[in-house]
Each structure stands twice: as structure tokens, then as C-alpha cells.
Simulated scan of single mutants.
Amino acid sequence: MSVLPVLMAAVAPGVALLSYFYLKDRYDPEPISLVIKMFLFGLLLVFPVMVLQRALGHGLGDSPFVFTFLISSGVEEFFKWFLIYFLIFKHTSFDEPYDGIVYSVAAALGFATLENVFYAFLNGPTFYELVMRALLPVSAHAMFGVMMGYHLGRAKFSQGKVHKHLALSLLLPIFWHGVFDYTLLITKAYWIWFMVPLMTFLWLRSLWKVQLANARSPLRMARREERVKI
């Protein structure tokens, strides 16, 4: 495969998933420029994450549990959470609960897309392998982004329980990312029997959270009141 088709195949899943979740915003779509900016910031996170993961890998050994839950998921999700919390959480464009999902998914898919590009050029995968990466790691990063963004939205717009939702916005992605990585690591020959139900659960859970976040939008309430007045 030549360079351009490989690059397009590696980038397409992230762009398609980001478009899907962006279009799920029913009431007040976010500025596309800001969403793209978060995607690019997520892409840039790959470099410091790689450096830190390599250092931790040398220092903490090769335990599968430590690697998957701390070195892999812990570091990656913390950096994404840090990015969203300090750049977006108090931004004026973050004006309804679903916005947290849009920005978190954008950062997560930026990260996953560059990882996918590196994998494609360093490993020379077949078309089947690229499809499987689109269905598994790239999609999984989007699901972790939904978890993070949903609870950031709850933290910003719910009355009370702010610290609880902030904690969940970080801990839930770390946990499920760790479960995902650990499952792939220890079930090498029969991984599909575990990954299909896991990914089905993550997708169904994410779509449910998307509905809940949209349902909690103050803009939805405002439109309902306008209809009543009319």
C-alpha cells in the first residue's frame, strides 16, 4: 500500500467517529474550530505520553496489571483529562452537559488517530488489521472520551456532587481503558470472545450517556418553554 491510502485508512476512523458524536449534539453545536483544536491537542499528547510511559515501563517492571491500568490507561486518560479540564471546563463554549462529551471525544480521538497512524506506518498492517483497529482501539478511545465528557458535564451543570463527578470523569475512563487493554493482553488466542461483549457494552453505555447528556441540556428546557408560550 502506498503512503496516501495508508494515511487515509489510519485517519478515517477517528474523523468518522468524531463527526458522529459532533452531530449528536442536538441543541447547540460547538464551534468546529474549537473541536478541531481539541482534536489536534489530543494528537500532540501522544508525544509526552510516550516518553512518560517508556520511563514508567523501565521503573515499574512488566506486570500486566501495572502496565495496563497504570502505565497505559492511567497515563493516557490522565493527560486527556488534564487537557480538557484546564482548557475547556471553564470555557464559555462549554454551555451544556453534552459539550463535555464533544470535547473529550475530540481529544481522545486525536490521540487515538496519531497512535493509529504510527501503527500503520511502523507495522505495515493488512486492510483487515486496519479495520480491526478502527473497531477496537480507536472506537474504545471514543467510548472512554464519552465517559469522561459525560461526568465533566455533570460536574459543571449539576447542583452538588461536583467533586464526585470530577473524580468519575477520570477514574471511569482509567478503569475501562485498563479493562480493555488487560483483556487484549491476556486473551491473545481467544480475545474475540471477550472483546465483542465488552465493546457492545461500551457502545450501548456510551449511547445511553449521549441521550442522558442531551436530555439534561438547559437549551432543551428553554425550547420546551418557548413551545409552551407559543
Rank of each mutant, 00 (worst) to 15 (best):
Y128M: 15
P137M: 08
F180H: 12
Y150E: 01
M221P: 01
E76Y: 07
P29M: 03
E77Q: 14
F94Q: 06
F94A: 07
T68V: 06
L184K: 03
I36G: 00
A155Y: 12
V66I: 14
L43Y: 15
L70C: 08
V131L: 15
M221Y: 12
R133D: 12
M221H: 09
F144Q: 01
L43K: 01
V210Y: 13
D25E: 13
F82G: 05
R223C: 00
E225V: 14
P48W: 06
R220N: 15
G14H: 01
H58M: 09
P64E: 04
G42Y: 06
L17V: 07
A106W: 04
L7Q: 02
Y22A: 02
F69M: 08
D28Q: 14
K37M: 15
V162E: 14
G74S: 12
A112V: 04
A213Y: 10
D95Y: 10
L87G: 06
T200G: 12
W203H: 08
K90Q: 13
L219S: 00
S158D: 15
V117Q: 03
E115N: 04
G160Y: 07
A222P: 15
F127V: 15
L34Y: 05
E96C: 01
F21S: 07
A16M: 13
V3C: 06
L135P: 11
F41Q: 03
L18T: 12
F41P: 00
I230Y: 06
K90V: 00
L70Q: 01
F89T: 02
F47N: 06
G153R: 01
A106P: 15
L198G: 08
I32A: 05
T126I: 12
A155K: 02
T200Q: 08
H177L: 02
D99A: 11
V196P: 14
Y22R: 00
P29D: 00
I230A: 09
A107E: 11
V162N: 06
P31C: 03
A142D: 03
D25F: 07
P5M: 05
V228G: 06
E76F: 14
W193D: 00
R224P: 00
A142S: 09
L184G: 09
L60R: 03
I88G: 13
L4G: 01
F118P: 05
A142W: 07
S2W: 14
